[in-house]
Design a protein around this nucleic acid. Structure first.
Length: 229
DNA sequence: AATTATTCCAACCGCAAGTAT
DNA sequence: TATACTTGCGGTTGGAATAAT
């Protein structure tokens, strides 16, 4: 850009980061801590603006990042929370330690957005039936399990007609997470969690060679999510 | 084997909320 | 108090890798 309005504009580097740039940024954070991103260029000799530096750190260089594939369990959480929060990726990310909002957003988009669309136009009736079957199945499992049935069933009856896209207040949500969610209790082969009035229960992920698991994985991955609740 | 299409992710952008001056 | 600067978020995109023709 050069000169505009008599001010010399910085010429920032853009595009993929090099190993050397990464080193400089890591060094900077080790020395000065996270934050004050706009001073990175000056103090670390990087020709990157603050935004770019922050993004690189948060999404890639942070040492507490969990690398590798999203696990089936993480996937389930993403789907559950997306049903509640919609595209509030950073909120969802708070329940997945070591995963970034960007990562989750990319994951959801590449794996689910299309299925969503496709199935809703193609065979919504079929998937609706599928969904209802699943619901029935789960309720039956609940009946068979040891947990406080009456309480949960009444919660369910209260909430089952609510739209999942209903958005609760964020503060409420966070507290629930700390106290309750995804430190799920294992009860009779099921995880149980409460999310802001919604009861969620799914088969234990790794109780191997169990039909329930097939049910669960299949269902979560299939076309249920087009059902317009 | 060559070309075209699709998938996927790192990194971009604009906006808005928060913080500093 | 008002304005400027910074940070964080979510949508979007460029292009490399992979798949399809």
């Amino acid at each position: 850009m050069g000169i505009r309005w008599g001010i010399i504009e910085e010429e920032w580097r853009k595009g993929p980061w090099t190993v050397e740039e990464d080193k400089l940024l890591i060094e900077y954070v080790n020395l000065h801590g996270e934050g004050r991103w706009n001073s990175v260029a000056r103090l670390a000799g990087l020709k990157r603006n603050g935004k770019s530096c922050r993004l690189r750190w948060v999404n890639y260089l942070r040492p507490d990042l969990k690398r590798g594939q999203i696990t089936p369990y993480e996937e389930r959480i993403i789907l559950e929370l997306h049903a509640i929060w919609g595209n509030r990726w950073s909120t969802i990310a708070r329940s997945l330690p070591g995963r970034t909002d960007n990562e989750i957003k990319n994951y959801w988009r590449t794996n689910f957005k299309k299925k969503f669309k496709k199935s809703s136009t193609e065979n919504s009736e079929k998937t609706k039936v599928h969904f209802l079957k699943r619901q029935q199945f789960q309720q039956q499992q609940l009946l068979n399990s040891q947990i406080d049935m009456k309480k949960i069933m009444s919660l369910f009856e209260e909430n089952e007609n609510k739209v999942p896209s209903h958005v609760p207040k964020q503060e409420d949500m966070t507290i629930l997470y700390q106290n309750n969610t995804f430190q799920e209790q294992e009860q009779g082969g099921f995880f149980y969690s409460m999310i802001n009035g919604y009861a969620n229960y799914v088969p234990v992920p790794d109780a191997s060679s169990n039909e329930d698991i097939m049910w669960d994985i299949g269902l979560w991955n299939l076309d249920d999510f087009n059902v317009n609740l």
